[in-house]
Amino acid sequence: MNVSITLATARRIMTQLRHDHRTVALMLLVPSLVMILLYYVIDDERAFGQWAPVLLCLFPFLVMFLVTSIGTLRERASGTLERLMASPLGKLDLLLGYGIAFGLMACLQVAPALAVSLTWLGLDLAGSAAPLVVVAVLNALLGTAFGLLCSAFARTEFQAVQFMPVVMMPQILLGGVIVPRDQMATALEWISNALPLSYAVDAMREAVTASEVGPSFWRDVTVVGGSALLALALGAATLRRRTP
């Protein structure tokens, strides 16, 4: 691993995004527009206060998963990955480069949606907004890490997109978003305990309701961050310098 190569890779991915104005506009605007839509659909301040943070955290997770898996697949198809694998770049340099670039994008994505929610839509947080931002950015990293890992098992863009429901939907259903986790059947609760998004949802709930986050928040956040790193390490293991 080499810090300057990692940072150069992150900068390169950001530059690629910068040339793609439409993608940047969509990434930055869509979450805010969906929050506004949610506000008028629910039409109830208290219920909006429960659902808004869920969306704020799921957005970076879903978007970064898709963007990363398509991005790495394109890199494989265009031959740039083979070229990089013949170069001094370390496998972790590439994966961490993606992680840093999309982590920054997640900050940029959450900021406007959070600002719109807190001001115009009157979202009420018990404490400061910082813990919520922490959870959102970690979710983006988790999405990026899963995207990198899954792209190793996808040969085409169509397959990569199909991995989204496979990886994401069970985590959302079992993560306590729709039904609280302690009300699920025991077996399902166990599975839910093994899925990183469950901890992200718990952390997000605490970030919204507690006036000051406690040790359980930091434990949840550590689990999410640790899972992201584990997925990155697995991603590095599936990346091969030599291919058939």
Partner: peptide
């Protein structure tokens, strides 16, 4: 060792100079 593949392996969404600047820092 410098290697150039048969089909051009550059990032299509970067300029020529940006492509080269990135690979220069990798190398």
């Amino acid at each position: 060792v410098g290697y150039s593949t048969q089909s051009p392996a550059v990032f299509s969404d970067l300029t020529v100079a940006e492509n080269l600047a990135y690979f220069a820092s990798v190398l």
